[in-house]
Design a protein around this nucleic acid. Structure first.
Lengths: 193, 193
DNA sequence: CAATGTGTCATACAATCGTATGACACATTT
DNA sequence: AAATGTGTCATACGATTGTATGACACATTG
């Protein structure tokens, strides 16, 4: 990524605006106001509006990855999957910001070729993470019998995105956690507690 | 709902614009252009922009319900669930339009109190439909053992929304169908073919 | 027939938009 | 020291926005 400090601040400001006021209220001027900069400065870093939008999406992916890599190592496949995926659910303010941005981009990418690639990479990243977790579970013999790892990956990813989508329009944290547990439990056997 | 003919045409035009150019390109003028009407006419039916947005969302829900009620009656619980939920996946142009609108509103509702209620009703409607399908499956003894009907409803709804979200950014119909089958199969036993 | 209501349209206004451009300060490179 | 590059800002342009308002045609109601 290799972004400067100001670029990061601008992207964070963009994320805040999307999460607070919606995807369609983003403009070079509104982001500049939020970041406390002149419009020209924002424009210098991201010449067009699309550049700004893409930057916001890439920044949220970075933030999520950063949070995931901070997780402590755990042996139990169920628990580590649970922890990893909870990272993506809107369970606090920061994750809520990222969740809203993610859903907004999922909608926007379907009609904007310029956003499509950045979004596709996000989906791919999620699938690879889940795939990796399931492979680990398989290695230690914790996957449920008779399921396709391929299909389980795709569906768990879909369910996580669905939970995110429901989560940003509700504040029932327990429903999110229960839904995630149920989804993981359909694929991975819980370890001995 | 009880809407006039012109109002319906305006809402359909709004849906087309959202599906083609994105949620944030909707304006009273752009919708009027799409519908072949004067801006003032659109404004007469939907005085503010938010009224227009809400109308588009309610109209897609109507279209989906209309399509569901057109489905032929089937005995097998698995098959009827499959047919019912396929109705919501972006598998052709019309369903794709509705899927994009749905995801766009899921994002928008999280930051716009005025859209929140309409969106919440949509989620509730989906859950009730699924709940009804699962209850039928339970009655005829096709649900898998040991699962909570409540939890299965919530998770199947989440997975469907997740598949929709992935589907609008891909044109792999088979992946959608396989994903849906897998998700239903985790909850409902297929009938004898 | 008169009055009222309803749907359609055209126009007007201030605000905001994306984008282009040039000025200025500072750092880096030559 | 001179030249070049980079980050910040202010300003300007035409286009588009949401919304308000009034005119006109037509149907409905009194």
């Amino acid at each position: 990524m290799q972004r400067g400090l100001t670029s990061k601040a601008i992207a964070d400001a963009a994320i805040r605006i999307i999460a607070r006021n919606g995807f369609d209220t983003i403009s070079i001027r509104s982001v500049a106001r939020e970041a406390g900069l002149a419009s020209g400065t924002v424009q210098h870093h991201f010449p067009t509006r699309v550049d700004l939008l893409v930057a916001a999406l890439e920044r949220t992916a970075d933030r999520q990855l950063e949070r995931i890599s901070d997780l402590p190592a755990i042996r139990d496949a169920y628990r580590i999957t649970q922890r990893g995926l909870q990272t993506l659910l809107p369970l606090d303010d920061q994750r809520r910001e990222e969740a809203i941005v993610w859903i907004a981009y999922s909608a926007a990418a379907s009609t904007r070729p310029s956003l499509r690639q950045a979004h596709a990479e996000g989906v791919d990243l999620l699938r690879r993470q889940i795939r990796h977790l399931l492979e680990y579970a398989h290695e230690v013999g914790q996957t449920r019998a008779g399921i396709s790892l391929e299909q389980a990956t795709i569906n768990l990813a879909a369910t996580v995105d669905g939970l995110i989508l429901h989560g940003i329009n509700s504040d029932d944290d327990k429903a999110l956690l229960d839904g995630l547990d149920f989804a993981i439990g359909q694929v991975i056997e819980p370890g001995i507690t």
